[in-house]
Design a protein around this nucleic acid. Sequence first.
DNA 1: CGGAAATTTGACCAATCGATCAAGATTTTT
DNA 2: AAAAATCTTGATCGATTGGTCAAATTTCCG
Lengths: 221, 221
Amino acid sequence: MAMNDQTGADAGNGGGVRQRSRASIERRILEAAESVFAEAGFNGATTAEIARRAAIPKANLHYYFNTKEELYQQVLTGIIGTWLHTADEITADADPARALSHYITAKIELAREQPIPSRVFANEIIHGAPHLGTYLGTELRAWVDTKAKVIRSWIAAGKMRDLDPKHLLFMIWASTQTYADFASQISAVLGKEQLSPQDYKAVARQMTEIILRGCGLTPPA
Amino acid sequence: MAMNDQTGADAGNGGGVRQRSRASIERRILEAAESVFAEAGFNGATTAEIARRAAIPKANLHYYFNTKEELYQQVLTGIIGTWLHTADEITADADPARALSHYITAKIELAREQPIPSRVFANEIIHGAPHLGTYLGTELRAWVDTKAKVIRSWIAAGKMRDLDPKHLLFMIWASTQTYADFASQISAVLGKEQLSPQDYKAVARQMTEIILRGCGLTPPA
DNA sequence: CGGAAATTTGACCAATCGATCAAGATTTTT
DNA sequence: AAAAATCTTGATCGATTGGTCAAATTTCCG
């Protein structure tokens, strides 16, 4: 909104301090919102609980974010932004085994390090993505088309088995994301409070091996 | 509760009619609840909306189900009951390739035929399974232990590659469930209103091939 | 300093929530 | 047909929701 005009054309230090402070509290609010949205979903989340975790009065929260919807949108777009760069190594001239291995490992590590925003996104998708507008069908679709084209070029070059690239991507997404989104189920079934970094490493190794062999590739040593 | 005592020690036709009628309306309410829970989650779901879809007054809904929690529990247990028998062919004396192939295919078909209850369950897990009590850590854990033991016996018999059976199961769960839970994302990315039965068949075939090759097995013709 | 802008905050509001209740309607049993 | 049990329903309750508002406080800058 017009709120940020304060520092827009402003030079010097004063505005800078304000800006830092504002960015700082907005980050605090967004982190609080992230966890509340992850635990309760959009409908179940309350601005009162978000404000409580951010340690500010509820009215103050509405000073920085007008509506709960606006807060949710920022959380979602933040998550998506974090995601789009995990497959950067999937390029036409890359070695398929190395690229896919790297992608799977990176996704598993992300599932371990940032499970909370992942759950917000998963929750949004499960309920039909009512707050994502046309994003899935436009930008994400284009992203997938690009990556699918790369994989098809690998197939055409005889580097890997012939298969549907998009459903391969879905399978990698599902398998890796499950360790973030369904962590409570996995840890309960395994009888562990939570998985150790070694557990995640072993998971990544086994998942890579299955996927790569499934694609007719040889897992890197 | 004590409401069902009406037909308990009762013989004859009258009670039977009542019972049929009661079972019928309860089924109608449960189906309405299922869809509402799937769309909005437990917190977002309202008894008013459930009653509206069941075409009864809200007060009447509370006559059959005392609380929203009770309704949710019945939906959850119903889903789980449907699930437990999809892996019946995973037994020690079965052929691993056939058993796993059958399991994956059955799970994909279930994802196509009954995506709604699957989403209710997924939503519950994502939010930390607050309504599932100890089920995940006791009964489901025991179920997984049993199946893992079977797979380990396959490995010991040299029938398949050495890998962690539980994480293999998680991978199959994730890959198959994604076509129910994240159907909105998949159809949007593919640019289709919804996947055709042929699409599901192709998905099951490719997924089976990847998993089986990943396990060092030869996919059945 | 002193006024203006930015920020903080408690109090408050209309809307909606899950659940209750009593009164009536219907069906079953005696 | 009378009594009892079961079912239906509009009205309503206290609690909670997202959001508003004006007054107070703090920060900024000439």
